[in-house]
Simulated scan of single mutants.
Amino acid sequence: MEHKRKLITKNDPKSPVSEQYRTIRTNIQFSSIDEEIRTMMVTSSGPGEGKSTTTANLAVVFAQQGKKVLLVDADLRKPTVHYTFNVLNTSGLTSVLTSQLPLMEAVKAIDMKNLFILPSGPIPPNPSELLGSRAMDYFMKAALEEFDIILFDTPPVLAVTDAQILSNKCQGTIIVAGSGKAEKDQLIKTKELLTGAQGRLLGVVLNNKKMKENQHYYYYGAN
């Protein structure tokens, strides 16, 4: 039941919450006039704010639109994507970055058209170094040749430097803030760290905000 609840866009696409994810998708697509945003990462200030659930549902709504989507678990410390989509995590991103497997051998197909999963793979001793490596640049190039959109689930910004490193390699970053959980000064610090790393902030998703008509998610621009 937990996985079904997390993947509401897949299991209940007509729900008000699923509609809000589609609104976020639309806002992302309109956020850049001159270039199509194809590489995005989702993060948060701290743990437990819903970043992984948001990433998974955004991946689903992009796939439902007909885009070929790769969801990458770049949280190489506490990965969860393999649980959400019920795939094995014996190999994944770390296997590709350390040249143990070619990209398309590590990618997992699931029971949904257009959506593919790359779990974290074995947890490495040096996550930030791996994400900042030249191998990661090669990975990006190879993935963009195979997929229309690549979405990265990353660790919280204030916990480790991983998200800052990856924000520099992606075209856009989305921050998830848990309603009643995220503090304003933490969000400001998170934004400063990401922009300081030359990351492009697309916006903030306010998560678990009780709204009329049972709508729990909405999106607003960062500027």
Rank of each mutant, 00 (worst) to 15 (best):
I188A: 11
K181W: 09
T9C: 15
A182F: 07
D75C: 03
T98H: 04
K209M: 01
K4D: 12
I175M: 09
Y220T: 11
T26D: 10
G196R: 01
L58C: 09
T154Q: 08
Q164W: 00
L7M: 07
L131V: 01
R22C: 10
G203S: 14
T43G: 04
L166D: 12
L76D: 08
A143N: 05
T190H: 03
P124D: 09
K68N: 13
S45W: 04
G46M: 10
S179P: 00
K210F: 06
H3W: 12
I123L: 14
T190F: 01
L101P: 00
P124M: 04
T23H: 07
M140A: 01
I37Y: 03
Q65T: 11
T80H: 05
L101T: 02
T39F: 07
N207P: 08
Q164N: 06
L118D: 06
D153P: 07
N207F: 08
E36D: 14
D148H: 12
P119M: 04
N57V: 14
G221F: 12
V205F: 06
L101I: 01
K78W: 00
G178Y: 00
L88C: 09
H3G: 05
P119H: 05
G178K: 00
G46H: 05
T90L: 11
K6C: 06
P79E: 01
S52A: 03
A222N: 07
M211H: 10
T94H: 01
L193V: 02
A159T: 10
G178W: 00
P119A: 05
S179N: 05
M136P: 13
G203D: 10
Q29M: 14
N214H: 13
Q171P: 00
